Simulated assay, not measured.
Amino acid sequence: MVRLLEKKQRTGSILTTFAIATFGLHLFVLLFLILQGLNIQKLSVRKQPNFVQMVDGKAVTATDDLARDPEAIRQFVSKTMIAVFNWSGTLPPQSIEEFSKPQIDRGILIRTPSSGSQKVTTSSWVASFAFSEDFRKGFLSQIADMTPPEVFASNSNQIISGKLVIKRIYPPKQIAPGKWEVGMVADLIQTKQSENQRLIVPFNKDLLVRAVDYFDYPQTEKMTDMQKAIYSTRTDRLEIYEMRNLCLLDAYDNVNGATSNQCLQAPNTGSFTR
């Protein structure tokens, strides 16, 4: 009888120990799953790492989300402004065949305050996505007013082309965390194909650039060529949010940093395209 009681006590003790161990294991697994869930939530809301485009084409992760390489900023300004004033009358080639036989650019209609609706080139429209949204609309309106209708002419004798020839882009000058001022000296050259006449207009501007975030399109396999071009303009994680007239006698060229009276007395047209 005593032996039976001892066996029952031993069996009960083993079951109790097993139940406690099982409960502890389940509790540990539950805590582990909660911690994993919290880590996954942090990853889902965390910003993508910013990259700084180096001169040699390599990219390195920036230690600061607002950091950008000065040469990358200059290259961004250069390629954006050249694309804005690419008035060739043809679409950017998307294949090898289109290099030899480019497609005609029909243009994109933009509403303007002065003349109702005017066309801008597809290149100008795509490049405009490198500008901040509040600045882009007014900028496109003035580009539409500047773009000659002859750019889209079907008659080769009437076609006018335009391009921006950049003479100099000054080193970016930081004005705030993640914001820079970049001076650009350039000429806007319009050429009439049939007569080989050229109209050269100085286009000297101060561009204000800032760092921005960038997120990839969620369904890249379904992107059109137009969508790919638009998203590619945002991959530099930079945008132009303001443009001003550049005075060549200001602190960019003034060793002492003083602004010339000649610049201060110059009339302000209130337009970034004049």
Rank of each mutant, 00 (worst) to 15 (best):
M54H: 03
V84E: 08
A83R: 10
F32P: 03
T22I: 04
R10M: 01
R244W: 13
D64E: 07
T235H: 06
S194R: 01
F18H: 10
S128L: 05
I200Y: 03
D105P: 00
R168P: 02
I175R: 01
S115G: 09
R3H: 11
M226N: 11
N157C: 06
G257P: 02
L140S: 05
N196L: 09
E195S: 15
I108W: 10
Q53L: 15
A130P: 04
M146F: 04
P202I: 05
E71G: 04
T269N: 06
L33H: 08
I20L: 14
T17N: 11
I169S: 00
Q193T: 13
A258D: 10
E6T: 15
L31Y: 11
S115H: 13
S271E: 05
I169D: 02
A186R: 00
T112M: 08
S161Y: 01
E71H: 15
R244M: 13
D105R: 08
V60Y: 11
K42Q: 13
T22C: 09
D56K: 14
L207T: 02
E98W: 08
T22D: 12
N261V: 11
Q118M: 15
E242M: 08
L4N: 12
K192F: 01
K119Q: 08
I189M: 00
S123K: 01
E195P: 08
V120G: 03
F215T: 12
Q158T: 07
S95G: 03
I240Q: 09
G116I: 10
S13W: 08
T17W: 12
M184T: 02
I110M: 04
I104T: 13
S161C: 09
D216F: 11
R10F: 03
D187C: 01
L109E: 12
K79A: 11
G270F: 01
G37H: 04
A127T: 04
S115N: 12
F131V: 06
L264H: 12
I14E: 00
